[in-house]
Design a protein around this nucleic acid. Sequence first.
DNA 1: ACAATATACTTGCACACTCAAGCATTGATC
DNA 2: GATCAATGCTTGAGTGTGCAAGTATATTGT
Lengths: 139, 139
Amino acid sequence: MDTLNPALDLVLRSALLWSNMVKKADQQLSVHGISFSEFGILHQLSLAPQQRLSRIELATAVGLSASGITRLLQPMEKIQLVEKEQNARDARVSLVKLTPAGQQIYLDAQQSCDFFATQFVSPLTPRQQETLADLLKRL
Amino acid sequence: MDTLNPALDLVLRSALLWSNMVKKADQQLSVHGISFSEFGILHQLSLAPQQRLSRIELATAVGLSASGITRLLQPMEKIQLVEKEQNARDARVSLVKLTPAGQQIYLDAQQSCDFFATQFVSPLTPRQQETLADLLKRL
DNA sequence: ACAATATACTTGCACACTCAAGCATTGATC
DNA sequence: GATCAATGCTTGAGTGTGCAAGTATATTGT
């Protein structure tokens, strides 16, 4: 108990840091009417070829379960940030595609998020930011 | 869109990484009948002087709201991992104290969590783990 | 061809968490 | 010393998410 395992300390600190970070990001994004999770969805879609992905792909890309994705997408479809498409080869998969409106919201939100992210890592020098990104990629 | 802001990329990657990490940690801890949040509570209490903290202190230490703490502690009090104590100087605060049973569960769970944490950071060399911990502390 | 298994979701239920409102107590100001 | 704001906490209502079970389609083995 006196000498704490550094790995455990790292894990606990990170969990706290990350939870606070997401809360702040959510706050920034609330101006655009979307949550950090929704931003993640839009982000992944905008990076995807033809800006569309299956729900399962989205789930793993943003770290949610399949059911989480289903429910998260419902309101986004309703306000037409995304739309459903069928997959010709497999009738089970229902593709999610970014609409022009969704694209626009994403670009707006991205600015806020860019700003936030830049601010968030600003205690580190550019060199350190690079190192951090590199180390995290290996986990 | 072509060249993504590295800071934004870092933030999004981290969110995914930590969310997956917490899920795995939760799985490891389920053997002991506690969640990662509950482990965090026990951990903070075991580090605290006299192993007791106010609910507000706990909240900020583990990254939850005051109401989150209230509800999280209810079952823990019921199975006597922690107990209530009054603060002599301020009747508003209700201190939370680790019981011997709670201490024992914590020590057991800590072993699992140590193991998990060590495994989690094992893709990095000890030197890199140190660097990572150091960089995260500055955020 | 047909059964058995796997995959891509969706839905019902449960749980964890937050926010806003409320209560009790304390501290500050006049 | 009375009032008014601030603090610590609890509770009611709502949101986000997961798990297990269900449905539809696909794939595999015989």
